[in-house]
Design a binder for these strands. Structure first.
Length: 920
RNA sequence: GCAGAAAUGGUGGAAUGGUAGACACGAGGGACUUAAAAUCCCUUGCCCUUAAAGGGGCGUGUGGGUUCGAGUCCCACUUUCUGUACCA
């Protein structure tokens, strides 16, 4: 019987569908296990061979857990809102929903071919109104909540309103955009409009005038994680800073908890570290510097309170609210010119130039410790969004301040003994203080650490400052001036935002005639006829960003068709949270922060029972492309093989990897590839044309895309699954190289032949060798799956098969165990074997075997004998021999005499089961 | 700059502190075949030595250290990848 992967795989995939093999329901009798993949954005290009890597790993784990007796939830869906579909719509006029639906169909087809154990009955799509109803609903909960900093949790906004009405802003500590103080009388005397306006300052989903990343080319704002090096992550267009009134989420309020709870998670250290840096906790102090001749103080934030004696000037961010208040009449013109200049620079220009720029305001502040007057500058190296938007400059110990001081010729006062500041600043936080003695405070002789503590204590006592912890994590900007996203369930009355009623959800995305902004610059939703108003009041025209739909999707899978709640209490209490999450590390500062925030918010409101969404997380590595090159001799149509190219003047040209095999070019296919190459000539080496190669991103333009469908068609899904795992550790990035796939395919075919031959053979009792080989395999594979090292399991399968072939093993008991352990890896062929062995139903329901240590015991143990750590010869002793016996045997061996060379051993180390080392 | 990860044959990669290079690819040789494909067998880190069996030396980016013993642990450095950055 020939191995026909096409027939076998098709038949079993149909079997799984027909029997709902992987449909799962909450079952209190069984322990649950939730395995989740990051759901894909269905792009027009389809899946390439890198995409399924994580899905295969998680599928193996799911199938394994299921065989271990767990009730496994393993769902899949689509992150369907996104920019590419919208941009395609702008170009073609085709509704993004149509494109998206087509792309999803294509993805599904590709996924199905690989034989995943997804429960497709739970599929979700973020652009489906039944789904985004709950995205909109969550937004409404955030709008109706505030964050209590004392209790460290979100609470209903009604509680805050009640407090304001009874006691004003005293005695309560809400997270806010800017601090406000008022009495109960003042609050109660405000109009409804005024009260609502003030409440915006406290809501978790709030509207605020904030500095945003504006991308003119995309015509929308972007979140911080959607911008990299001043360019948009999607498209790579320049991004500029702009003040705009936008919806925001008060993620910053959750910064301490997002940071602390990282401890509890089984995530990689590097990913946790990335999140820690992004959250960016820094402990320091806020301090007041009185402005000379004015009745207000400048408030600054510093982590180096010890350096106040070295402050020789101050700097404000260009956007700082202090600027207009203290600029002198003589300097007004210069300051305004500078502000104008800064405004027109994009973020990228600001970063690339890195030129020192700034302007004097004409005002002076007084150093509170020395009493000296110091000038106040404005410069764009100070950021408005961090700390207070103002700094005390210590040029001797901060490189940025140093550069500024040198440029404007300002004094530099070193404060640490032995620090040479003639060429550069001394930024290290170590050493002994000097030059730091004022009328009230003397820091000289203290270490930097002690000086910081002493200064903090002093300023607190004097009432000129206080200890403060700052976080770099900003609130998430939640508005997008785009069409293809969730509409906000918000309308405006008298300019103030009001929520629609929950019964009006989902607020459906309307049809528009074009996906571009309107003439008047409104977002595309402004074009929807008859949609923009609700009872005469205008509706919000922005849509939500991509991360809105992906922030709580894992909850929806638990209870995907519930029309009463995002997730029902019973379902939530059973499935709780994701036990294993598999996906790319590129989501570290985006999705993985937003999801954790979103989950914590729902947790605070008592809507979900776990404070963290993803218990264990594995980051699969990126699969890069492996491009092939041919070398054209200049001004000819002759191509020279890689090894001989140095002898000519050549231009490397990328060639489609699908017409290259083991770096050997199929020259006929090459001639047929492009009309230009139809009459190409080749200079061969050893009768072959060898291509060069390079590792690059896998993309169409590099001609290095390998399609999983082609692999499945040619070798079968089982071979693809095994090969993707065999490539190396799941976490590691590596280039895709189809070259090695023959080895894995050979294994599958040999395995098939072995089974077909063996299954009809006469039955005998399993031999000791057979039992040993199979139990060794079971033990090895069990351990490997638990530790996610699938590549070594594949090797173990190959070794085991070789052993069984050598033993001419035909025992069904042994084959039965083999089938069970290979089932998660190569499910189709395993199902076929399962059937051959006479079982009913699916091998996915077969129990995972337990190995028996008794079979793994050896009669005798081999010990390498080393002299001074260098292995010299091997002895064999009976199993269970004592250390003394092993020692004796080692010295009795003929080799001992030679290597001792007459000397007596100084020491003999026997490590049971491992090694004997004789020290001479 | 900062943070994290990594560095092992021609290649992908194995090695709870205990005989480095499992397994696979590629390459070389052989068998079968009219031939090719497929399949099977042998060799394959480097160097020296031997007629052969065999024997010996060197080897996990560099330099130190701990240890009877280090790819593995510690310190310093080099390089590569990833993330992040005027965050005061």
């Amino acid at each position: 019987m020939e191995y026909n992967h096409r027939e076998i795989e098709k038949r079993w995939q149909q079997f799984w569908r027909d029997n709902n093999t992987f449909r799962v329901e909450a079952d209190r009798e069984k322990p649950k296990f939730y395995v989740l993949d990051m759901f894909p954005y269905p792009s027009g290009a389809g899946l390439h061979v890198g995409h399924p890597l994580g899905y295969i790993a998680s599928d193996i784990y799911s199938r394994y857990k299921r065989q271990k007796g767990f009730n496994v939830l393993h769902p899949m869906g689509y992150d369907a809102y996104g920019l590419p579909a919208e941009q395609y719509a702008i170009q073609t006029g085709q509704h993004p929903e149509i494109t998206t639906r087509q792309n999803i169909a294509r993805y599904r087809e590709q996924l199905d071919k690989i034989g995943f154990s997804f429960d497709w009955s739970r599929e979700i799509r973020t652009c489906d109104p039944e789904y985004y109803k709950w995205t909109q609903w969550a937004f409404m909960q955030m709008f109706n909540s505030w964050y209590d900093l004392d209790a460290s949790k979100a609470r209903p906004i009604s509680e805050l309103v009640a407090h304001f009405a009874a006691e004003g802003s005293e005695g309560i500590n809400p997270a806010c955009s800017k601090p406000m103080k008022f009495t109960a009388e003042e609050w109660n005397s405000l109009s409804e409009k005024e009260q609502r306006r003030r409440l915006m300052n406290y809501r978790i989903a709030y509207q605020g005038e904030t500095m945003v990343n504006w991308c003119p080319k995309l015509g929308t704002v972007l979140a911080n994680d959607e911008v990299s090096e001043g360019l948009s992550v999607r498209g790579g267009y320049p991004v500029e800073q702009k003040m705009m009134n936008q919806w925001c989420l008060r993620v910053s309020a959750y910064a301490p908890r997002l940071l602390d709870d990282l401890e509890k998670l089984e995530w990689s250290d590097s990913l946790k570290e990335t999140q820690r840096n992004w959250i960016g906790r820094s402990e320091g102090a806020e301090m007041l510097f009185p402005v000379v001749g004015k009745d207000f103080d400048l408030e600054i934030f510093t982590t180096r309170a010890d350096t106040v004696f070295g402050v020789t000037f101050m700097v404000l961010a260009p956007e700082s609210k202090y600027v207009p208040r203290l600029v002198s009449p003589e300097q007004r013109e210069a300051v305004e010119a500078y502000l104008d200049e800064v405004k027109h620079k994009t973020e990228r220009e600001r970063q690339i130039e890195k030129k020192v720029s700034g302007v004097f305001t004409g005002a002076y502040a007084r150093n509170p410790l020395t009493g000296k007057e110091i000038p106040i500058y404005v410069s764009d190296y100070v950021l408005a969004g961090y700390g207070t938007g103002a700094i005390m400059a210590v040029p001797a110990h901060d490189s940025r301040d140093y550069a500024f001081a040198r440029h404007f010729d300002l004094p530099v006062i070193p404060l640490i003994e032995g620090a040479d500041v003639s060429e550069e600043s001394f930024d290290a936080k170590e050493g002994t203080m000097c030059n730091s003695c004022g009328p009230e405070l003397d820091l000289n002789g203290l270490s930097v650490k002690d000086a910081i503590a002493r200064t903090k204590q002093f300023i607190t006592e004097k009432g000129i400052g206080h200890v403060k912890t700052n976080y770099r994590l900003r609130d998430a900007i939640f508005s997008r001036q785009r069409y293809w996203g969730e509409p906000f369930p918000v309308y405006y009355k008298d300019g103030e935002a009001y929520l629609m009623d929950e019964s009006e959800l989902p607020l459906q995305l309307p049809q528009v005639d074009s996906y571009l902004p309107t003439e008047s610059g409104e977002p595309p939703l402004g074009r929807a006829k008859g949609w923009q108003t609700r009872e005469g009041y205008p509706i919000e025209l922005c849509t939500m960003p991509g991360f809105a739909g992906s922030s709580a999707y894992y909850l929806r899978y638990m209870d995907p068709r519930n029309s009463e709640a995002l997730v029902g209490r019973e379902a939530d209490e059973y499935w709780r949270n994701v036990d294993l999450y598999v996906g790319g590390a590129e989501h570290a500062t985006g999705h993985l922060i937003y999801s954790r925030f979103w989950n914590k918010f729902l947790f605070d409101l008592g809507l979900v029972c776990e404070p963290e969404p993803f218990k264990k997380l594995v980051n699969q590595g990126m699969i890069q492309g492996r491009s092939n090159f041919v070398y054209r001799i200049k001004d000819t149509n002759t191509f020279v093989s890689h090894g001989l190219r140095k002898e000519y003047d050549t231009t490397p040209i990328r060639v489609d990897v699908n017409i290259v095999n083991n770096d050997g070019l199929d020259t006929d296919a090459f001639r047929a590839w492009r009309p230009d190459y139809a009459d190409a000539e080749f200079i061969l080496e050893d009768g072959k044309y060898i291509c060069g190669y390079a590792v690059e991103k896998m993309s169409k333009s590099m001609f290095n895309v390998v399609n999983p469908d082609d692999i499945v068609d040619r070798y079968g899904a089982d071979t693809l699954r095994l090969y993707e795992m065999f490539l190396g550790p799941v976490e590691q990035s590596k280039p895709w190289d189809t070259n090695g796939i023959d080895g894995v395919n050979r294994f599958i075919r040999k395995l098939w032949n072995h089974f077909v031959r063996a299954v009809d053979a006469e039955q005998k009792e399993p031999t000791r060798e057979e039992l040993k080989a199979i139990h060794k395999l079971v033990k090895k594979v069990s351990g490997d799956i638990e530790s996610f090292s699938f590549n070594t399991s594949i090797a173990a399968f190959m070794i085991a098969l070789n052993e069984f072939s050598a033993l001419k093993s035909t025992n069904r008991e042994v084959m039965d165990l083999f089938t069970r352990v290979i089932a998660p890896f190569a499910p189709h062929i395993a199902e076929e074997f399962w059937q051959m062995l006479g079982h009913e139903g699916s091998v996915a329901d077969a129990a995972w075997p337990v190995w028996n240590e008794d079979y793994l015991k050896e009669d005798s143990v081999k010990y390498p004998v080393s002299f001074n750590g260098k292995a010299r010869y091997t002895i064999e002793v009976p199993a269970g021999a004592s250390k003394e016996d092993v020692e004796k045997a080692a010295l009795a061996d003929a080799g001992a005499e030679k290597w001792l060379a007459g000397k007596t051993p100084r020491k003999i180390i026997v490590v049971p089961g491992k090694i004997v080392n004789i020290v001479v």
